[in-house]
């Protein structure tokens, strides 16, 4: 169990973390998701003991982390650019954490060789033990870094933008592979990402961060379906932002109405995802200004009344059936509208 309470950290006038509290359950794969500067990497570094908080506390399995040195925390850290030791072979990199052990815990050479062999099998680099980091591809380096971190049997595995430096295909494969590894080894892992797709696909629990604060914590589906704040809604995918007016629990959003319980009467903001907008025949809500074919879908750039721009994404079949042309006036129906109190 990792308990983070009221953590704060400032770099000069910039608040990297502002009163962050969070609980990480053992066995979970947790994503810290947020834009750059949201404090997610700072939080990760404080967990590893590479940075120190100005206020608040971190408890690792009941121990106050403030009293533990980095090297005594047994936290595995995979750096964004891997930080492999260039002058060591793959096997020596993986063995590093075992070789620097002291006292009765120090394994002998045969034990080290055996563990390294097992880890290299695990990360599918069996034949590459003698290679040097600069002779490996990005994805292979990533897996060496992971094997190196796992060698010391960490209580907590931390990954900083683990797929940031890889190309799209490798990234997808590695994601699935990491998910399996996490489940097979029964790890507790936290990874940092700015890619909402990665967070939603990989994590058991997503922590959305913004400006040093936690905006929302929840399962990927929960976060996506019930975003707590306008920031979360916008960060998890494209969104059309519209002005709304709330009267007695109902919101008027352009040509539509939506439920808005718990929101006081008066001006509000509403969001509609582009794929939640359907084109209906015979209406008159918007003009198509531009159309872009994106593989199986078509994106329509629309102008609503009062010169408000919006996007809709519809599938190719509906697009062909409706025979839409640039300049057409169309009717729109919103399947889901999220309403928030005006900021």
């Amino acid at each position: 169990m990792i308990d983070i309470s009221n953590l704060s950290k400032r770099f000069g006038a910039f608040a990297a973390l502002d009163d962050v509290s969070l609980r990480i359950t053992p066995g979970k794969l947790v994503a810290l998701l947020g834009p750059s500067g949201s404090g997610k990497t700072t939080l990760l570094r404080i967990l590893a003991g590479l940075d120190h908080a100005d206020g608040g506390a971190v408890q690792l399995n009941g121990l106050d982390a403030g009293t533990l040195k980095t090297r005594d925390r047994r936290v595995g850290f995979v750096f964004q650019h891997y930080a492999l030791f260039r002058h060591m072979s793959v096997a020596d990199n993986v063995a590093f954490g075992l070789k620097v052990k002291k006292g009765p815990d120090k394994p002998n050479k045969a034990q080290i060789a055996e563990t390294v062999g097992q880890l290299l099998d695990l990360v599918q680099l069996t034949g590459l033990a003698g290679r040097y980091p600069q002779q490996l591809s990005g994805g292979q380096r990533q897996r060496v870094a992971l094997a190196r971190a796992l060698a010391v049997e960490p209580r907590l595995l931390l990954l900083d933008e683990p797929f940031g430096a890889l190309d799209a295909q490798v990234r997808k494969d590695l994601r699935r592979w990491l998910r399996r590894l996490h489940d097979d080894m029964g790890l507790t892992s936290v990874f940092v990402t700015h890619d909402q797709e990665e967070a939603l696909e990989l994590a058991d629990e997503v922590v959305v961060m913004n400006k040093g604060r936690v905006e929302q914590v929840g399962s990927p589906a929960d976060i996506y379906d019930n975003p707590a704040t306008p920031f979360v809604f916008q960060f998890l995918g494209n969104a059309n932002r519209l002005d709304a007016v709330v009267r007695g629990g109902r919101a008027l959003v352009g040509p539509w109405t939506a439920d808005a319980p718990d929101i006081a009467d008066g001006p509000a903001v509403a969001f509609v995802r582009p794929h939640d907008l359907d084109v209906v025949p015979g209406g008159d809500h918007a003009i198509i200004r531009h159309q872009v074919v994106l593989g199986p879908t078509v994106r329509l750039d629309l102008v609503l009344d009062d010169d408000i721009t919006a996007e809709a994404i519809i599938d190719r079949e509906s697009h062909a059936r409706l025979n839409l042309r640039t300049g057409d006036r169309i009717g729109l129906q919103a399947r889901r509208i999220a309403v928030f109190a005006a900021p």
Binding site: G49, T70, R71, A149
Partner: peptide
């Protein structure tokens, strides 16, 4: 980062 990695690995 190299030094930080070493520290995390217990060096």
């Amino acid at each position: 980062e190299l030094e930080e990695a070493a520290a995390c690995l217990g060096a």
